[in-house]
Nucleic acid binder design. Structure first.
Lengths: 95, 95
DNA sequence: TTGCTATTTTGCCAAATTGCCAATTACTTG
DNA sequence: CAAGTAATTGGCAATTTGGCAAAATAGCAA
């Protein structure tokens, strides 16, 4: 196995970075239960809808969520529900 | 179980943020094998020692590493070797 | 088409992050 | 004590991030 360098960790770092925000963890936790539209997530987190939309873009770029349009609504869902197992585990890590 | 809000995710987000950097993942991976001093980590990552030292501070603040002085050297170690299990898993997530 | 609603994009700005260099601290040895 | 090695700290510029608000876009319905 070749020795690993910084560049081998860029992709995982990107995913971790996407996870590393309280609002995004809250969003992901909500998506774990069910597909949810942006306006519902806005009510959940209490920020401006544009802010929520930006967070969702970050998650999408990291490949953690995907969207499906249904009429006027965009319903977001987890692409890989297992992400939150890490998050829960890390929560325990942090005492 | 009470409903979770943003503030419940601040601590895990802090830990994830500490993980979310290629250099820090490389450092953690090295520490998994053995306790290591800063100058050795500097050779590994190729950045200035002050830069490495700051990364280690971030990891220490997140509770992921601890240091033990031995003469002139400060040897860092993982406080909880399991962290990298997440990282490996997340690496797979990111395709 | 027009109007309405849901969502995204853009612009803006304050705050945080990153990495380097220089100065400083901590420790050992002569 | 002074000199040398290991590490941290402070300062700085460049870049990124987070959040709001205004403008633009996408789809539905009359």
């Amino acid at each position: 196995m070749p020795k690993k360098g910084k560049s081998d960790y860029e992709r995982p770092a990107l995913v971790l970075k996407a996870l590393a925000h309280p609002t995004r963890l809250l969003i992901l936790n909500s998506l774990k239960k069910k597909e949810t539209c942006v306006c519902e997530l806005r009510d959940l987190v209490g920020d401006d809808m544009s802010t929520v939309s930006k967070h969702l873009l970050v998650l999408k770029n990291a490949g953690l969520v995907a969207a499906r349009r249904e009429g006027n609504w965009l319903n977001y869902r987890l692409t890989c529900p297992c992400v939150l197992d890490f998050a829960d585990c890390i929560a325990k890590l942090g005492k």
